[in-house]
Simulated scan of single mutants.
Amino acid sequence: MANFVLVAGTWLGSWAWDEVVPQLRAAGHADHPLTLSGLADKQGAPAGQQTHVQDIVEEVERRDLRDVVLVGHSYAGIPVGQAAERIGERLARVVFVDSIVPADGESFVSAWPDGRAMVEASIDKNGGFWAPLTAAEFEGQGLTDEQIARIVGGSTPHPGATLTEPAMLARPLGELPATYIKCLLDGDEPSPDVVALLRDERWRLVEMDTGHWPMFSQPRRLAQVLLEAAGR
């Protein structure tokens, strides 16, 4: 039995995985969808990037989880990638879902130079938080109007410090067993840093013909990919 620890990206909480977890359970595995500090039902909790890393590590250690598959979507790839190396032998695999991967000394905004000014402006304007997207900004991502409404309705402002603080890695990310899921409606190819990591035999690439939020647009297919990534 694998233990899937599921972490969604900016603005989202554990609820984002509601349509994925039944498929994992049906296959006989345990699911642990996690809300990061400062988001969803944890709004108001102070949060920097290392807080989010510790959220994930503590979930694994508190529950004494083994055979862990850490899953990070979008922004969450940064804290998930750091947590993956910190849980040691408990880790079975890390799965990055159309995400930014951590680089030592680099932040979310430094990894996304084209969007840095926009993100930092939103943080300054909104009291230290990145404001959620509007419905129109989800167009072209393979989502129905109902799915977009669900995402927008559940989103909460994202703590800005988690996006501007640098990642801290003790060893090269390529040493971890990893799967990278590329959602093709959000770009045909992974970023250059991910392409470089995929040259390592421990990394695998899986493509999904959907947008950046596959837990909403294709939850069954995403669950299947996660099970395959875990070797189940």
Rank of each mutant, 00 (worst) to 15 (best):
V109R: 01
P192V: 08
Q141V: 00
V194F: 01
P79M: 08
T210H: 02
A40L: 03
V20H: 05
L227Q: 10
L169T: 14
R202E: 12
E201G: 13
L91E: 06
W17H: 00
L34I: 08
V53T: 02
I123P: 02
V68D: 07
A83F: 08
I100M: 14
W17V: 03
F129V: 08
E120L: 14
V69L: 09
A111E: 09
W112P: 06
T156L: 00
A149W: 07
L24S: 02
N3H: 07
A170V: 14
G38P: 00
A167H: 09
E59H: 13
D104Q: 06
T134G: 15
L173M: 10
A135N: 09
T179G: 06
P33K: 04
Q218K: 13
G142M: 03
A76S: 10
L36R: 04
G28V: 02
T210V: 01
W203F: 12
E189W: 12
V60A: 06
L173V: 06
L12D: 07
P177R: 08
T164V: 11
R202S: 11
W15D: 05
M168N: 13
M1P: 10
S122N: 05
V119Y: 11
G160S: 10
R62Y: 15
V101L: 07
F96H: 07
W130I: 10
G231F: 05
A136I: 00
T134V: 12
R86C: 09
C183E: 02
Q54A: 14
E61R: 14
A117K: 12
S37N: 06
P219Q: 08
M118D: 13
A229C: 08
E19Y: 12
V109L: 05
S14F: 09
M215A: 11
A76E: 00
G231T: 13
Y180F: 11
V94Y: 05
L6T: 02
R63W: 14
L12P: 00
A135S: 12
E58S: 15
H212R: 03
R202F: 03
L227F: 13
G9K: 04
R221L: 13
M118P: 03
R93G: 03
P190S: 04
R171N: 13
H158E: 11
V97D: 05
L24Y: 01
H212P: 00
P214A: 06
G174I: 09
N3P: 08
L198V: 08
V206T: 07
H29S: 00
P172R: 14
M1I: 11
E146M: 00
A131S: 14
A47F: 03
V57I: 14
L173G: 08
Q147A: 01
S217C: 01
A161P: 05
A230Q: 05
Q54S: 14
G28N: 10
P172I: 13
V206L: 11
G231M: 09
R202N: 13
V94C: 02
T35Y: 01
Q147C: 02
D18V: 12
E61A: 14
G44T: 11
F138L: 03
L91I: 05
V21S: 04
